[in-house]
Amino acid sequence: MSKYLLNKFLYTVDRDPELVERYREDPVGTVAWWEAEQANRILNCVGGESSTWLRFDDTERDALSTHDYPRLFELGAHPFLTLTLFIGLFERDHEPMGFQTEYARRLAHFTLPYPDIAT
C-alpha cells in the first residue's frame, strides 16, 4: 500500500478540471490510465523524469475505482485531498453544502485517533 500514491492521484486529478470530469464519468478507466501513464511521473519535474515501481494495490485501486472515499480515508488518504476532489466530483448533485454534509455523515463512524495520514 502506498499512501503517497493515493495522495498523488487525488492531488493531480483534482488540479485538472478535465481529469475531474473524466474520473467522474469513467472512474475505472481513469484509474487504470493514471496508474499506467502518470503514477511514476515525478511531481513538479521536467518531462522525461520518472520512476518505475509505483502501483496501486487491489484495495486502493478498488476504492479509487468506486469513488469509495470512506475507504480511502481508512487507507490513509489525506482527508483534505479527498474532500476537495470529491466536492469537485459530486457537489453539483447536492444542495449547497449537501455533499460536505454527506461526506461527514459517511465518515462519522471514525473516532480518534484517525487513520495515519503520514506518507
Rank of each mutant, 00 (worst) to 15 (best):
G48Q: 03
I87F: 09
I87H: 08
S50L: 05
T30M: 02
L64C: 05
R22A: 12
F73K: 02
R24M: 00
Y69V: 01
T111G: 07
S65V: 04
D93W: 00
V28G: 03
A77M: 04
V28I: 14
T82N: 11
E60W: 07
E49R: 04
V28H: 08
F80C: 05
L107P: 13
Y103C: 10
P79S: 11
E60Y: 08
V13H: 00
G98Q: 08
L85H: 09
R55P: 01
Q100I: 13
L5K: 04
R24K: 11
T101N: 12
S51C: 00
M1K: 06
F86Q: 06
S50R: 15
L54R: 13
T52D: 06
H94L: 06
D62N: 14
F9S: 02
L112I: 11
R15K: 15
H78A: 14
Y114I: 05
T84L: 04
F90H: 10
I117A: 10
L43F: 08
E91L: 05
E91T: 04
N40P: 05
T84R: 15
R24A: 02
N40D: 01
G48Y: 00
E49K: 13
T119W: 10
D58A: 15
L43D: 12
Q100P: 00
D14C: 12
V13R: 01
Y4M: 03
P17T: 07
L75H: 09
Y11F: 06
V28P: 01
